[in-house]
Design a protein around this nucleic acid. Structure first.
Lengths: 156, 156
DNA sequence: CGTTGCGCTCAAGTTCACTTGAGCGAGCAC
DNA sequence: GTGCTCGCTCAAGTGAACTTGAGCGCAACG
C-alpha cells in the first residue's frame, strides 16, 4: 500500500528528481513522510497517472495541470482552463493528422526532392501560404489602424 | 514576389527574431540579401509553412524538422526520423484523445470532487496504475537479472 | 566500524526555442 | 541634418521543467 519515491519513479517511468520537483511545486505531494522520507499511497499513484496523462500525453503545462487537479468543484476559474484545454487538444489532433499526412507523403513520394518537386505537396503548401497572406491582409489593416499591438497567431 | 522579414513575420504569425533565429540555425535561409537585408521568396514561404506544420503543429523539435526538410532523397538517415515522427504523432493523437475524454468527463461529472469521488474516473486511473505496476514488474526483472534472489516489493 | 545505498535539502546548472539589449547602418521625411 | 523606422550583428537573458552537485543522515551489510 506504500511506495517509496524510487518505486513510484520506476513504475511510472519518471525520475526521482521529477517527483521531488512535483512535490515542491505542489502538483503531487506524498501521502506523508516516514521521518524525512516521502511515502506515496494508492491515491497518489492515481493522481500521478492523471498528471502523466494531462501533462505528458496531453501536453498541458504543469501550471494548468495543477489548476485542473486543484478544482474540487470544476466550476472555479479552472473550468475555463479545462474547456480551453479540450479545445486546444482538439485542434492539436487535427494538426497532428495533417503533419502525419505530409510525413507519410514524404516517405512514399517517388520524387527525388518532394519538397521542391512534388506537385501535390507544392500545391498544398501554396494553399497554406495563400491563406497566410490573405489572413494577414485583413489583420494588417487592423494593426495599421490602431498602431502597434500585435499578438497571437492567426490559427491556420 | 519578394518579402521582407517583417512581412513574412506578419503573414505567418511569427516574430522577426524567430525568423532570424531560423536563418541562424539553418532551418530557413532567406532567398538572398539586398545589402545586409534578408529577402524571402515564394519558396521560402512554402518552406516556412511546412516548418510551422511540422514544428509548431506537429510538435517536432527544430532539429528533427531541420533533418526532415534536409533530406533530398528521404532515404537518408532522416528517413528514420520521419518514420519515427509518424509513429510518435500517432501515439500522441491517441493520448490526446484519452486526455480530452477525461477532461470532458471532469466538466460533465456531477460529483463534487470527481478526482476522488467519481467511480468511473477512479476505475480508469486504477487500471492505468495497475498497468504501470505490471509493466514494471517485467522491466524490473530485466534490470534484476544480474541480481538474483527476488525482492517482491509490490507490497500487499 | 567503515562503506554502500537510498533518501534528504538547497542552490545552481541545463536544454530548447527563442527574446532582448546594446550598438550600428541605410533610407526618407520634414 | 536630425530624427524615425526598419534592418543588422553578437552576446546575453528568459521560462518551463527538470537535473545535477554538494553535503548530510540513517540503516544495513560484511
Amino acid at each position: 500500500m506504500d511506495y517509496s519515491i524510487s518505486e513510484v519513479a520506476r513504475y511510472f517511468g519518471i525520475t526521482v528528481s521529477a517527483l521531488r520537483y512535483y512535490d515542491q511545486v505542489g502538483l503531487l505531494h506524498p501521502a506523508g513522510r516516514r521521518g524525512t522520507v516521502r511515502i506515496y499511497g494508492r491515491d497518489e499513484l492515481r493522481r500521478l497517472a492523471l498528471i502523466q496523462l494531462l501533462h505528458h500525453d496531453g501536453m498541458m503545462s504543469l501550471a494548468d495541470t495543477t489548476a485542473t487537479l486543484a478544482d474540487k468543484p470544476p466550476s472555479g476559474g479552472s473550468r475555463h482552463v479545462v474547456a480551453e484545454s479540450i479545445r486546444v487538444m482538439h485542434h492539436q489532433i487535427e494538426q497532428l493528422r495533417a503533419a502525419q499526412h505530409i510525413l507519410e507523403h514524404l516517405l512514399t513520394c517517388p520524387r527525388d526532392d518532394p519538397i521542391r518537386d512534388c506537385p501535390v505537396l507544392r500545391t498544398q503548401l501554396e494553399d497554406t501560404v495563400d491563406t497566410a497572406l490573405h489572413a494577414n491582409q485583413t489583420a494588417e489593416l487592423d494593426t495599421r489602424m490602431t498602431n502597434k499591438d500585435d499578438s497571437g497567431r492567426p490559427e491556420t
